[in-house]
Design a protein around this nucleic acid. Structure first.
Lengths: 155, 155
DNA sequence: GACGGGCAGTTCAAATTTGAACTGCTTCGA
DNA sequence: TCGAAGCAGTTCAAATTTGAACTGCCCGTC
């Protein structure tokens, strides 16, 4: 085994910045959503994705893919949202082994109520801290990182 | 309440890239460490921070700050590492209510064994995917995001 | 037609994480 | 000098997350 290629100063700064910013932003938004909307971040994300989907419904596996989490995690969180009346389950008519999660009217209302404060916080902690040039590089660079891993995960 | 300032396309791309890359990189490294070193990511991070500290020891609260996690989370993970013999606890001599976590010889060995493959994977998924210019912007931009939240969290 | 493999979700137990309450000790301020 | 307030960690119960095993049902092949 050859000598590992350790990270130089710039690489280390980028790596540490990425990790620290990721954790801190996560925590900030987790708190914001819990306090102001009574939802966990995964729960909020499920509502967002359903809301953006045609007919407000998605297969369980699609949700798992979008949230980047395990199948069982989705089963659990959808069950929680069902208890809250924000989501409903529906058997998939064609694929016999398929299940749709469907956004309910209640769910849509809850999401509309929660979104403005959430977006505002996202601006506060990340977006409004950066200039357009930085946003462009973030979008391009991290978009590429995400796509590569997404492709790799599917393989 | 005024109309919320929704994210435009560029802002949305930056935000989604940030979130997706964060999750996917996390999962990739979690798997890598578990498979090749038998450590969870938090455990590995504890060893790294102890290794970089003078005398290989840090207070529990300092670890919590560095890992960006809760005090009880640190208590738990340090206990796990103690069972593995990679870390030892030591009462802090001056501050009577203080506890040091100390890296053991075993811990240092385990870390040296794990680090090369870990760094290699960090390169694969993030560092080597980007050019120097992108790394510089990441470091600067996310460094600022992290510092702002760190200051805010302490307040 | 029957069987091995897959697929989509669920279930389960185990590991982890969290916040809130608690322990002991110290340090002020009145 | 007393007591309120704080600090550093721990403990505890509850919520969440995970991977592995399981359930049914489909498909293609022989």
């Amino acid at each position: 085994m050859s000598e590992p290629r350790w990270l130089d100063d710039l690489e280390m700064a980028a790596w540490q910045g990425f990790v620290e910013a990721g954790h801190r932003v996560d925590r900030a938004l987790e708190r914001q959503l819990k306090d102001e909307a009574g939802l966990s971040h995964p729960q909020y994300e499920i509502l967002v994705h359903l809301s953006g989907a045609p007919d407000g419904e998605l297969r369980m596996a699609e949700l798992a893919e979008k949230l980047i989490t395990s199948k069982s995690g989705i089963t659990y969180q959808v069950a929680q949202l069902e208890k809250l009346g924000l989501v409903r389950r529906r058997a998939c008519p064609d694929q016999p082994r398929g299940v749709f999660a469907v956004l309910t009217e209640q769910g849509a209302i809850r999401l509309r109520g929660a979104a403005p404060a959430h977006v505002e916080r996202v601006r506060e902690v990340l977006i409004d801290v950066l200039d357009r040039e930085q946003l462009a590089v973030l979008a391009e660079a991290l978009g590429m990182v995400g796509r590569r891993l997404r492709a790799h995960d599917r393989a």
